[in-house]
Computed example of a mutant assay.
Amino acid sequence: MPRFSFLEWPVVRQLRDGDILGRGTAVTSQHTRDKKPRTVEADHVAHSVCPYCAVGCGQLVYSKDGKVTQIEGDPDSPISRGRLCPKGAASEQLVNSPRRVTTVRYRRPHGTEWEDLDLETALDMIADRFLEARRRHWEETDEKGRTLRRTMGIASLGGATIDNEENYLAKKLFTAAGAVQMENQARI
């Protein structure tokens, strides 16, 4: 560690360098001057949208060697104009967290432990349960003989992180399946 020099004391640097108000380089340490933004070393920048709410703030996702290194607001976004809320600004942690679950987790009925399932098995289980609930709770007509063609055994609670196109497709899917209970977290 280099020996401290009185000439490098910030007040002396202010007077020596003419930075009397202490708003320039005189008040920054060498350690601070040596720092570089994480975005400088990125080898790729992708335009994205924040995954947390329905606002749709634009993000610039910086990566190096295939790993996300920084996420910042996109100044070209007409929605957020380069700004992100605290959650959006911290979304890099969503990608790089060592606690991030990257497998399908399943806990059997009355089970106490979680187990990993492959995606194909999980999707088959969801489809089977969806179709069984639809079949079991199908209502063709009401008590007066009026046509219903609906099921009360399926409901949809959408998240605010999907965009209009995905919401449109989800609405079409559940309507085609006969579901009448469709809601979104933004309304609740």
Score class of each variant (00 low, 15 high):
residue 17 D to F: 08
residue 23 R to A: 04
residue 46 A to H: 14
residue 122 A to Q: 04
residue 128 D to A: 09
residue 168 Y to L: 05
residue 121 T to L: 08
residue 87 K to Q: 14
residue 159 G to L: 06
residue 99 R to F: 08
residue 141 T to E: 02
residue 88 G to S: 14
residue 51 P to K: 10
residue 132 E to P: 02
residue 28 T to S: 09
residue 56 G to S: 11
residue 144 K to G: 07
residue 18 G to C: 13
residue 19 D to N: 06
residue 90 A to C: 11
residue 114 W to C: 14
residue 35 K to M: 15
residue 55 V to Y: 09
residue 107 R to H: 08
residue 80 S to H: 07
residue 51 P to R: 11
residue 120 E to F: 04
residue 9 W to N: 15
residue 57 C to Q: 06
residue 80 S to Y: 03
residue 124 D to P: 01
residue 156 S to N: 01
residue 80 S to R: 13
residue 116 D to A: 15
residue 104 V to G: 05
residue 64 K to P: 00
residue 101 V to I: 15
residue 27 V to N: 05
residue 165 E to A: 04
residue 135 R to M: 02
residue 52 Y to W: 14
residue 134 R to A: 01
residue 79 I to F: 08
residue 174 F to N: 00
residue 163 D to H: 06
residue 175 T to R: 03
residue 47 H to D: 09
residue 22 G to H: 06
residue 71 I to D: 00
residue 47 H to E: 10
residue 162 I to T: 06
residue 159 G to K: 01
residue 19 D to F: 02
residue 99 R to G: 07
residue 98 P to K: 08
residue 93 Q to E: 13
residue 127 A to P: 02
residue 96 N to I: 10
residue 51 P to F: 13
residue 113 E to S: 14
residue 5 S to P: 02
residue 1 M to C: 10
residue 30 Q to N: 09
residue 39 T to G: 07
residue 129 R to S: 11
residue 66 G to F: 13
residue 58 G to K: 04
residue 30 Q to L: 09
residue 183 E to C: 02
residue 116 D to R: 08
residue 75 P to L: 14
residue 178 G to M: 01
residue 106 Y to L: 14
residue 94 L to Q: 05
residue 43 D to E: 10
residue 89 A to S: 09
residue 35 K to F: 05
residue 44 H to L: 11
residue 164 N to A: 15
residue 182 M to F: 00
residue 82 G to M: 12
residue 77 S to C: 15
residue 87 K to R: 15
residue 132 E to L: 07
residue 130 F to R: 01
residue 47 H to R: 13
residue 181 Q to L: 03
residue 126 I to W: 10
residue 185 Q to P: 01
